[in-house]
Design a protein around this nucleic acid. Structure first.
Lengths: 200, 200
DNA sequence: CACACACTTTACATTGTGTAAAGTTGACAA
DNA sequence: TTGTCAACTTTACACAATGTAAAGTGTGTG
């Protein structure tokens, strides 16, 4: 039945995530995934037409597990524009470490694979909409800094929240996740608030 | 003589840069480089032990051509801390597009090649020193925002000036180089100046 | 009982890196 | 003039990883 079909497919996707998020980081060659899933390498090609296809599917699979949409949508319930911006920044900032590994693979694959590139670009465009919504909320409240129009502010925020910047902050800079979030809150306030909250 | 040796080596390095900076972007497989240099593929291995070695050498070769050190050192002559920060940001911001292609290859190679990773990391550490010097100058003038200590400000600036952020700004955001520099000036002022210059 | 389907097994093509070793050439020295 | 050395070429091969192809296995359902 299709149950078996689904089970094997799921086993493969789970195996992919297991390898991607294992410590220390493991390789995720097609054969590694197959072995981890307890399945032949060819079985993987039976379900996914190539590695890019598998990793894109694994990304969606992870989305479901993390309930990504719901988590990011939560920031929309905030009352003020400021609260909404901070809620969005925090939600996304906490989301990155959970998807970081697979994001890296997808970004890296984007250099050669068109489908991977477009899958990642879609996610980034969705993310930009979240940035735009937060900036728009700030603007609607009249609390967006007059130094930016909404487009520019959105692009700056979008850039600040990139996976690469998280990686650089927590890697090269050696910041903890907590510090990363603190600095993100501080810098977004200084940049985007019409009247930045000053430290006492 | 060693003249011949040097000439072939130089030809190969130049060929590497020619391919890296060609429009549209060309592949830089060992065989492509060899063909471009008018030399056999094996000759490349005679001068460079592997692809990482070749690309690291090409990076240094480009440094010489661009007189990298001199350009970045120029920012140190600025009088005030504010001028110095802006001079450094502008110098680096204008430097990135000139090294972007080779930086990308080196970064990408860092995922698998230890030598490439450490070559790129060295450059980034050098760059961080430039950031630190600029922030220190601001701090010495008493014009560094009290919201940051010098370490944190350095790390934030360092992150802002990353190659990835340039790529995202001029690529995904669609900004021109001029706009990139303008936004960089604006955001660094808002973040790091004790008393940010306000738009009229 | 058979046959359909999911999966396995085996084998092979392809691409790019890197190694190995024999052959060629040209400049310079005896 | 000849010999030799170094730089380079040519040819060949090993290896890793992706992807294709096709025959074989085993099981549950009509």
């Amino acid at each position: 039945m299709s149950t078996t079909h689904t089970n094997t497919r799921t086993k493969i996707l789970q195996a992919t995530l297991d390898l991607l998020f294992s410590e220390p980081p493991a390789k995720t060659r097609m054969s590694d995934v197959a072995t981890q899933a307890g399945v032949s390498r060819q079985a993987v090609y039976l379900h996914f037409k190539n590695r890019a296809d598998l990793l894109i599917a694994a990304t969606h699979f992870l989305d479901e597990k993390l309930d990504t949409d719901a988590r990011l949508a939560a920031s929309r319930t905030a009352q003020s524009g400021r609260d909404r911006l901070q809620a969005f920044v925090t939600a996304w900032g906490n989301y990155i470490p959970e998807i970081h590994r697979i994001a890296k693979v997808l970004i890296s694959m984007s250099e050669t694979d068109e489908a991977a590139a477009s899958a990642w670009e879609n996610r980034m465009q969705d993310m930009r909409e979240g940035c735009a919504a937060a900036i728009d909320a700030l603007n609607a409240d009249g609390t967006l800094s007059p130094d930016f129009n909404t487009e520019d502010a959105t692009d700056v925020l979008w850039t600040m929240l990139s996976v690469h910047n998280w990686e650089h902050s927590t890697g090269a800079c050696g910041w903890s996740q907590k510090k990363y979030l603190t600095m993100l809150a501080l810098t977004t306030q200084k940049l985007f608030y019409a009247d930045p909250v000053k430290a006492p």
